[in-house]
Simulated scan of single mutants.
Amino acid sequence: MPLSASLAISAFAELSQAIDLGTGRVPQSLSRSAQLTTGTGAGKADKVFSDRRTLAASGTEDLDLAGVLLDAFGAAITFVRIKGLFIAAAAGNTNNVVVGAAASNPWAALLSATGTVTLRPGAACGFLAGSADATAYAVTASTADLLKVANSGAGTSVTYDIHIVGASA
């Protein structure tokens, strides 16, 4: 099944200050992007998982990156390499969404086995491995394939969106 993907991360800021005869401005920007076509090598991907998910108060889930997640057509996905990962916490959440540090078999290629990222309500994070990189971030079935997502507190559920692009080899 053909896949094309466009992954991008960007930031822009502009400092300004009144000066004698006008306003001085210093624009600053940083952006990176990758265009991926069908395949498994450098500049290629053949698997994608995208979903809006909800966790109960104090709830957690382990997303199994090797063989359990389903694509948009209901087929099981086995990622061997992750090329891009984007997660966004809903702005209406009361609690934070915490990503990483599965109790067993953690996918540690990005955050290490115990590392986490905390997404406050409305926050998002993402990474892209880049189109020139064939290695990306490895997933090892049964030993390093679980991405934990947790609701940081009691009382209310949290909702988050997730988008993963990767390769099967």
Rank of each mutant, 00 (worst) to 15 (best):
A8K: 14
F86S: 10
V139K: 00
G59T: 02
K83T: 04
S29E: 14
G166S: 09
A134H: 05
A132N: 12
D64W: 05
A150M: 10
F49H: 07
A13E: 10
L146C: 05
V165I: 14
A169K: 08
A103C: 11
S142Y: 07
S104W: 02
D51V: 07
L111D: 00
P2Q: 06
S104E: 05
A129W: 00
S31R: 14
A91Y: 10
L111Y: 00
S50G: 08
P121V: 14
K148Q: 15
S33C: 07
D62K: 07
L15R: 11
F79L: 07
G166K: 02
D133F: 05
L128M: 10
P2L: 09
T156G: 06
G92C: 06
V165A: 07
A141L: 13
H163S: 13
L7T: 09
E14M: 15
E14W: 11
N151W: 01
S112C: 07
G59Y: 05
C125H: 09
T40H: 03
A129I: 00
L70Q: 11
R32F: 12
V149E: 01
G22F: 08
G155R: 13
S131M: 06
L128C: 07
D46L: 05
T159F: 08
A57V: 05
I87L: 13
I164P: 00
A109S: 13
V48A: 09
A34S: 13
F49S: 02
A101Y: 02
S157R: 03
A123P: 00
A123I: 04
S16D: 10
T78H: 03
T159M: 14
P121A: 15
T60R: 14
L30P: 03
S58D: 13
A5V: 03
A138Q: 07
K148S: 12
T140H: 05
I87N: 01
E61N: 10
S29R: 11
T118K: 04
G92W: 13
V99D: 05
V80P: 00
K44N: 13
E61T: 15
L36G: 02
K148N: 11
S10T: 08
V139M: 05
A72S: 12
A76M: 06
R81D: 07
T94W: 08
S131K: 09
S152D: 13
D133H: 04
A13M: 11
L128K: 04
V26Q: 15
I9Q: 04
G115E: 07
V97E: 01
G74W: 08
D161C: 07
V99S: 06
F49T: 04
V98F: 04
F73Y: 10
L128E: 04
Q17D: 12
T60K: 14
V158S: 02
A45T: 05
S4L: 09
A75N: 12
A123L: 07
A124R: 15
A108V: 01
A150R: 03
T23A: 13
V165L: 09
A103W: 08
I82G: 01
A45R: 01
V99L: 14
I87P: 00
D71Y: 06
T60Q: 15
G153A: 10
P121F: 10
G24S: 15
T37C: 09
T94Q: 14
G74P: 06
A150I: 04
S168G: 06
V117K: 03
V117A: 11
G155S: 12
P106E: 00
